[in-house]
Amino acid sequence: MSATVTQDMSLLHLVTSASLPVQLVMMMLLIASLLSWWFIFRKLFAIREAIKQSDEFENTFWRGVDLNTLYQRAAGARDRAGSMERIFEAGFREFTKHQSGMDIGAIMDSTRGAMRAAYQREMDRLEAHLSFLATVGSVSPYVGLFGTVWGIMNSFRELSNLTQATIAHVAPGIAEALIATAMGLFAAIPAVIAYNRYASDTSQLATRYESFMEELSNVLQRRAVKL
C-alpha cells in the first residue's frame, strides 16, 4: 500500500532486489561474459603470435637457409617455435629417418603423414576455446531472455494482487528483469564478433600451413631424388 513513488532505480539496487532465479541468470551471464572475454584476449594474443611466427619462419625458409640448420634451430628451441616451424620439424625428422635406398614414394608418404599429424595438432591448439565463444554468443541471449521473462512474469503476478495498478508498480520489476537481457547481449555480442574474426584468422592460417606443407614436401622430394 505504501507505494514509495520515487523508486531507487540505480543499477546496483535493481540487481540486488531482483528475484533469485533472475539473480542466478545474471550470475551465470556475468561468469560467461568474464570467461568469454578472457578467451577473447587469450585467442587474440595466441593468433597474433602464430601469424607473426609464421611470417618469420616463412621468411627464413624461403631465403634459402640450409634445411639441416633450420631443423637444428627448430628442435633446439621447441618452446619458442611457431606452428609452422613445428610442422617443418616433424616432417623433416620423419624424412631424415629414411635413408637412401628406400622407395621415394614411401618416404614421402610417411613424411606427409608426420606433417599432417603436426598440422592437425597445431590447428587443434589454435581452434581451442573458439567453440566456447560460439556457445556464449549463441546461448547467452536466450539465457538473458529467460531471466527477463521470469522477472516480468513475477512482476505481473504481483500486480494481480493490487486492485488499482499503476505503471509505477510494474516498472521496477520490468527494469530489473530487462537487465538480464542486457547482460546476455553484453556477453553475446563481443563473443560472436570475436568468434567470426578468429575463425577467419585460423582458417587463413590453416591454408597457409597446408600450402607450406605441399611446398615442403616438394622440396623434400627433390632432395630425396638427388640423394
Partner: peptide, 17 residues
C-alpha cells in the same frame, strides 16, 4: 607442453576483468 604455456594467460584475464 607448449599448449600449456600459451602466452598471456594472466594478462588476458586482467584485461577481461
Amino acid at each position: 607442453r607448449t599448449a600449456d604455456e600459451e602466452p598471456g594467460l594472466v594478462r588476458s584475464a586482467a584485461l577481461a576483468l
